[in-house]
């Protein structure tokens, strides 16, 4: 393990899906870093490539998808091109994933303790079954499940939705990973339960120094939780920066539109800003900026590929006509 660098550094990652109708660039030249103990929000609408980015890091992209370029440096080692055996040593051990549906993680016919002990022993043969049980119990306690000793003996169907998601998080934590990728983990949960999960996630990252990528479509969720944010559109990161900077002074027209279309306290009785049109098909993207057809600022310049620029300190965007005037005011 190397010392000071970021826990995860994704450089120019490209994941393409080779379908019968053509090549879909689901992840197109995506780069970001996540430091120790940092929470990064990866935000986008459906089909923007945010989940595929998460899957690509873990090497979980199935054919016809393929990681065709770029690097995923985890503690300094490139994960792209590792064989299955090497990846399996990392998955569930150094890198864990939490899915939207906890039943994707849990096996419905096995008791929770069986599944948890198996996870521990799969990566650490030196410890006894009893120690593994002890560690499972502690992990359940850590995510706020009452009476963990009894709950270990329960089956997944005996838990409520929020509790199941906690069990899934506890399993992710078992081997004290350096990185957790959370893919919409609270989308299916109720507001008060979501608050509890966000609280646990935040506490864990602060206390254990685990880095986290929180994938979501909900800007309001990441606003309170994350340290920095990447906004994705049609496979590309269009804007990235510190969370307060981006939310207070968005400069990419897509981010501006997205923030304007969130209803809430200040918008009561007014019309919401609406981004016209709909998300384009990845198989049929226009040349140049993918957002041009829906963008109020688009002109001929946008038919060329926008490169990453840094118009403000610590802010990367892909746009020829950013909202810089507004941001300066």
């Amino acid at each position: 393990m190397s010392g000071d660098g970021p826990t995860l550094s994704v450089c120019n990652l490209e994941t393409h899906f080779f379908t019968r109708d053509g090549v879909a660039k689901a992840v197109d030249n995506v780069s970001f870093d996540v430091d120790k103990g940092e929470i990064m929000g990866l935000v986008g609408e459906s089909g923007s490539g945010k989940s595929v980015t998460g899957f690509s890091i873990l090497g979980l992209v199935d054919p016809p998808g393929e990681v065709v370029g770029g690097q995923v440096l985890f503690n300094g080692h490139d994960l792209v091109g590792l064989d299955d055996e090497q990846m399996q040593k990392l998955r569930g051990n150094r890198i864990a994933m939490i899915f939207q549906d906890p039943m994707m993680t849990l096996n419905p016919v096995l008791r929770v303790d069986t599944q948890m002990i198996e996870t521990v022993l799969a990566h650490d043969k030196s410890i006894s079954k009893n120690e593994a049980r002890q560690r499972s119990r502690d992990a359940l306690g850590q995510v706020g499940i009452p009476s963990p000793d009894e709950r270990l003996k329960a089956y997944p169907h005996q838990f409520s939705g929020g509790m199941r998601q906690r069990v899934a998080i506890a399993i992710a934590l078992l081997n004290k990973p350096d990185l957790i990728i959370a893919d919409e983990p609270t989308t299916a949960l109720d507001v008060t339960i979501q608050g509890q999960i966000l609280y646990e996630a935040q506490k864990l990252c602060r206390e254990t120094g685990t880095a986290m990528i929180w994938i979501t479509h909900d800007l309001a969720v990441v606003a309170g939780l994350v340290d920095k944010i990447c906004v994705m559109y049609a496979g590309r990161i269009v804007e990235q920066g510190a969370i307060s900077d981006v939310l207070d002074n968005p400069v990419h027209p897509y981010t501006v539109g997205l923030l304007g279309s969130v209803p809430g306290h200040n918008t009561r009785g007014e019309r919401l800003y609406q981004i016209p049109g709909m998300t384009p098909s990845l198989l049929n993207l226009p040349t140049g900026c993918a957002f041009q057809a829906r963008c109020p600022r688009a002109d001929e310049a946008c038919t060329a590929e926008p490169n990453i620029t840094q118009p403000l300190a610590d802010r990367n965007i892909r746009c020829f006509h950013p909202h810089l005037q507004e941001a300066a005011e």
């Binding site: 507001v191 008060t192 979501q194 608050g195 966000l198 909900d218 800007l219 309001a220 969720v221 606003a223 309170g224 939780l225 969370i243 307060s244 939310l247 923030l259 969130v262 809430g264 306290h265």
Partner: peptide
Amino acid sequence: EVPRLDQR
């Protein structure tokens, strides 16, 4: 509990 944009 409602996540809001203006809370950081």
